[in-house]
Structures are given as C-alpha cells and as structure tokens.
Design a protein around this nucleic acid. Structure first.
Lengths: 210, 210, 210, 210
DNA sequence: GATGAATGAGTATTCATTCAT
DNA sequence: TATGAATGAATACTCATTCAT
C-alpha cells in the first residue's frame, strides 16, 4: 500500500505540474493557439507524457476549469457554514469569495464559460463533463440557498433564489469578461477590482429590500 | 450612375448573404470548427467567392461584430435623444435597448468580446479594427453620459459615470455569456429574458440613490 | 476584305497590347508570381479578354519568347546576307546582333530557356511549340553556316559547326543568366555589357585559328 | 556522447534521405509542380516529417543548391592547392573540376541560378541565404585568383581577373542551361560533355596570350 | 513510465479559367 | 467583342496524437 500510495501521489504531482504549465500557456495564447508542444516545453516534459495524464488537449483544458470549480465550491461551502451570519453577511462573504476565485485564476475563469458553451468540446470524457456540471450545480445551489434564506426572511427582494444566484454569477463573470476583453488584466488589475467592487456593491443594494 | 449604383447595391447584397450564412455557421460551430467551405455551402456560393467580399476568415467574423455594434449605437443614440426623459427614464430605455440588441444576435454578442480580447486576431485590417473600436467607444461614452447626468442630478450613487457604464455593460454581457454557457438559448429564451430582467432591475435599484 | 483586314489588324494590335503588358509583369514578378489579373490590369483590360487572344497563361508567356526568336532570326538573316563579309566579319556582326537581341528584352531571354526545358509547359498548343522550335532551329542552323564557312576556309578551329554554334549560343545565354542571377540588370547594365564583350572576345579568339 | 552523436548522425541521415528524394522530384517536375506530397512519397515519409527537417519548401529546395556549392568549393580549393602547377595547369584542372560538379548534379546546378535571381525566394532563412552567398563568393574569388596569377604572369590576356572568373562561370552555366533546355541530359550526356569540352577549350584558347 | 520522432488528416487561401450578360 | 463575377481545384503547412524504443 505504501508503494501504491506513493505512486499515486507521484502521479498526482505530475498532473499538477502539467496543469500549472497548461494554465500559463493557455492564459497567454488561448486554447487554439496553444500547442501541446508548448505546454510540454513549459512543463519540461515530452509531448507524449502529457497523454499519459490527460486523454487529450481538451480534457487537459477542461481540467483547469475543474480545479477552479473545486476551489469555488470550497469557498462557497465556507460561506454557507458561517452559522451565525445572516443572509446579509453571507452575501458579503460570498462577494469576497468571488474576489478570491478571480485571483486564483483570472483568465481561466472566462474560458470556463467558453468550455461549457462550446459545441466543439465533444471530446471530453463523460466523467469529466459530469464532474464539471456537478461542481457547477453544487456551487450554484449553495449560493441559491443564501438567497433563499434572504428572500424567506424578507430581507431580499422577492425573486426566485435560483434566478438571483444566476444573476449574481453572471454579474461576476460579465465583469471579468468585459474587462478582460479590454485587456485590462495585468496592466490595471486595480481597475478591474474597482469595477468588480462597484458591480457587487450595486448587486448587494439591488438585492436587498428597501 | 444607375448602373454604378445597382452594382454597388448588388455587391452589398452579396456581402449580406455571406454574413447571414457566416452567422449561422459560426453560431453553430464556433470560429475554429467553422470552415470557409461550410460557410460557402451555407451561402450557396463557392469558397473563392467569399474572398471577393472578405479579406479572410477573421475579417468575415469580425464583420459580424461590427454589424451588431452599429445596431447598438443606433439604439443608444435614440435613448440619448429622448429629450424629455430624465436619467431614470433613460436608464429604463437603455435596458430595453439592450434586450433588443440581444434579440438581434444572441450568440455573436459574446463572440464580440472574444474578438476584442483575442491575441489571435491580428489579421484584421486596421480599418476594420478601428471601426470596431470606434463604435464600441462611442456607444460606451454615450451610455456614460446617462450615468453622468444621473450622478450630477444626485439621482444615482456617486460613482464615476464611466465605471457605472462599464458595470452596466458587464452585467449585460455577463448574463448573456452565463446563460449561453448553459445553452439556454433557443430552448429557453424566456428564462434568459427573465434573468436579464432581474439583472437589470437589480442594476436599476442599485444605481439609484436610496 | 478592307473590313476583314482592318479587323485582323485591330486584333493584332490587341495581341501586342497584351504582350507588352505581359512582358512588363512577367519581367517584374516571374512566371509564377505574375497573375492573369496583374497582366489584365497592366493592359487595362479584363482578365476574360486575355483569353480571347491567348489560349492560356503559358501560351501568353511562350508568345513572348516567340517574339524574341522572330527578332533573332531577322537579325541573323541580315548577318548571313552580308555578301562581301568573310566568316570573320560575320562572327563579329553576329556578336553585335546578340547584343541587340539582349537589349530587346534582357529578362525574357533567360525565361525562354526555362520555357523550353520545363516539364510543366505541356499546355502549349502544338502549333506554338512548333513555331518556337522551328525558329530556334532556323536561327541556330544559320549561325552554324557561319561557323561551317569559317571551318571550311580553315579560319576557325576544326570543330563541327553545330557544336560551335551551340557553344556560341550557350556562352551568350550563360552570361545573361549568370549576370541576371546577380541582379545586375537595371543597376549595372554597363557591367553586363562589358562582360558580354569580354565573353565574346574570348570566344572570338578561341574560335579563330592561330 | 555516444547517444547524442548517434542521434545527430541519424538526423543527418534523414536530411540526406529527404534531399535525395527532393532532388529527384524537383529535377523531374521543377519547383512549382513538385508538391511536398510528391517529395514525401518519394522519400517514403509523411509530409509532416519533411517539416521536421526543413523549414519550408523553398528552404528544402535551396538546401540542394547549398550541397552543390559545398562540393564546388572543395574542388576549387583542391585546384588552388596544386602548389607546383602554374595558372595554365590550374585552369585545366578547374575545367575538370567543373565537369565533376556537373556530374554531381546536372539539373540542380541551373536551378541554383534561378534561386539566386528569384524575387520569390524571400522565405529563406537569412542563415541559409548567407551560407549560399558565402559559398558562392568564396568559390568565385578562389577562381579569380587563378586568373589573377595568369594575368600577372602575363600568360593570360590582360583582363580583370574577376571579369574572367565571371565569364568562366557564365560559360559553364550557359552550356549546362542551353543544353538542358534541349533536354539532352540523360539521353545524350555525351553530347553535353563534348560541348562542355569545346566550350572550355575555346575559353582556354581565348584566355591565353598568343 | 517517459520519450520524441513520425504521422497524416484537416483547411485557409489563391488564381487560372469560364460564361452569362 | 468585352466584361468581371464566380468558380473550385489544388497545396503548403500545422499539430494533436501515437507508438517503438
């Protein structure tokens, strides 16, 4: 078992090594312009090795999204677990969590959408696709519970909690997308943060009952 | 002149014919999987003909974005021209305009962002790129005037008008993106509309001073 | 007939107009990079019109060679007709004639070789091919008579006349080719002329008996 | 070292394998009609493999010229090194060397000119272009030294050595070109050899002082 | 496991040629 | 005749993926 386990650990380390390289390369060049060769070089491995750990290019790409979704879920779960906090406070915590998610990987986050919408990513293994969908759903429904509580306690405007959660998420991704499209990232990260703040502030206000 | 003009008209018709086909194919397959062959077939033309009207694949793609930006600008200008309306009313009109922009072309609108952010689209002729940037800037600065008026009249919260305009746009695009990524379009357009409504309602509330 | 003849004349004028344009374009870009569109524009005609006068691109190209061969033959015939001149004097005249042929069209002359050697020019109509071969042969055999006379009169070294004619031609074309490959043309035409002179001088010396 | 070296050797072997195939195909079809597919098939490799060893079609083509220039330089250097031989004898050796160069690759030798003169070959890597130019220059200047010595020793006619070297080279290439254009190669190699001999004999006579 | 050389399917683009007007 | 818009065959090159070592 010791040996078995060590191998497992070693294997996971390699996966991470590749994903780190892939993140860098995809971020810089985008999915299409990034070649497996590029990624292999960045990871200081041979192209063939990549295929020992990821079925294909798209699966490697998708795995990056998976990672961020995993991180997102952890953060959202923590927010939910703030036992003493009311919906109001949790909303605030949620916004902070989103900042951190953004910090975790500013560029991949928008690609994640692309991933899900794309007609092209039919090569994903069903398992991976399921994991991604599952994680998304879990996070989103947890977020929705915050809004459900708020609505039930008559603190938030009377909209379906899921719709509010969707809007919250859309707002976040929209800001990232929009500002990314203006290539603000890296150069003016502060501006991005500011705009995110405005967006969430507005969202917070708009959600709360007057 | 008659003959010259007719030719011009005919040429423009062809361009439109190609763009309609391109829109369909790009929407269905995305930029990379869509082949010029596909588009030619959809347009019932030969591949070579496409190149009589568009310099290359990317320019054809970008032209679609241009079209929607032109439509957006027209709509925004109309909103601005509502002389008797206050910032409040104009904000409402603006939201309606955005719905229509979305209806005009639900899928291309997100690709537009991709376009502007992409490192890959270096093949665009400078003129086209300039037109796109120019139209974007014009629309955004007009939208900003609405918020500036609102802030000056102390109706809206005191944020820099441009930041508010950015946030507005980000909100809109975020909703479209997020929901598109869930492939709701076509199947559940109503749901998308609902969510857009919630988003804008929240934005309206959040923007206004209490 | 008047009308018939005028039409014929008009047709010939058009052919010349096209050939002049083609010569310019082929000289500048070479056979492959030159497009029929280019030539049409240079001739201020439409691409379609070119095909009313020339079967295809290669035939148009070959026609330029034909023209120079026609000019060559005329010049060589004049040399032969110098009744009072001995082989010695005729050789000198011949060299002068070659200068003029070169002046007539410095670039096409080397392309002519390419033409004859190319495996690619199978599209030529047999008639045109025959004309080219016929003209080449005629010129060459006339040149050979000069050498035959020289050898017979024991003025030239005792080699087969045809071999001498071949060598003469090869020398000429070689100089043109070699110096063209150094891109001397246009910039240093004088140097080319000088080198041609040296070459012919050497040839003249070498051919004459001591 | 052993392993590194063997790989290097293997790589070089592949390059040669490809060049041999390319030479065959280019010789038969010419640059434009020869497809990379053709060459790959001839080399019993896949098209992609060609690009592992040569940047593009033009560079592959140019590499063939490089090879012959390398051979030429070696031969010329040997001629120069004939310590006891006078200019007269060296000229004779030089002519023999040119025969051998011609034997080495009868068809590519004329394409080499095309290469240097062509406006189209702008895709060559500067390094390769430099190598070609460097080799050409070296050979030519070595050849020129033979003529310089001849002129200085008052054995050759009083012409600038470089001009004589140019003429010598032009004579050689001209004969190859001219006779190639008559498609004599392969079918009547002997005739070509004869003509080269006559040409060189005439050149030799013409160069020497009487 | 790791390698990386080899593969070969896939595609944007060009341009000689045609033909309806 | 002349046009020039439309054609569509032809091809260099890329890169995800494989597999012998």
């Amino acid at each position: 078992m010791g040996i078995q386990e060590r191998k497992e650990r070693e294997k996971e380390r390699r996966r991470q090594q590749i994903m780190v390289a892939a993140k860098r390369v995809f971020s810089e060049k985008g999915f299409n312009k990034a070649t497996m060769e590029d990624i292999a070089q960045e990871a200081e491995l041979s192209p063939g090795t990549l295929y020992l750990y990821f079925k294909n290019k798209e699966e490697l790409y998708a795995s990056l999204s998976l990672r961020i979704l995993q991180y997102l879920l952890i953060r959202v779960e923590h927010v939910i677990d703030e036992k003493d906090a009311g919906p109001d406070q949790k909303l605030k915590s949620l916004m902070e969590a989103m900042y951190d998610v953004y910090e975790f990987d500013p560029l991949i986050i928008i690609n994640m959408f692309h991933l899900q919408s794309s007609e092209t990513l039919k090569n994903l293994s069903p398992e991976l696709m399921d994991q991604i969908k599952d994680l998304s759903r879990k996070s989103l429904s947890l977020i929705a519970t915050i809004f459900r509580d708020g609505v039930e306690q008559d603190l938030f405007i009377d909209r379906h909690a899921v719709a509010l959660a969707d809007t919250f998420w859309a707002l976040f991704s929209g800001v990232v997308l929009w500002l990314t499209s203006k290539k603000i990232i890296d150069e003016q990260k502060d501006y991005l943060k500011q705009t995110l703040e405005i967006a969430f502030e507005i969202f917070g206000r708009g959600v709360k009952k007057s």
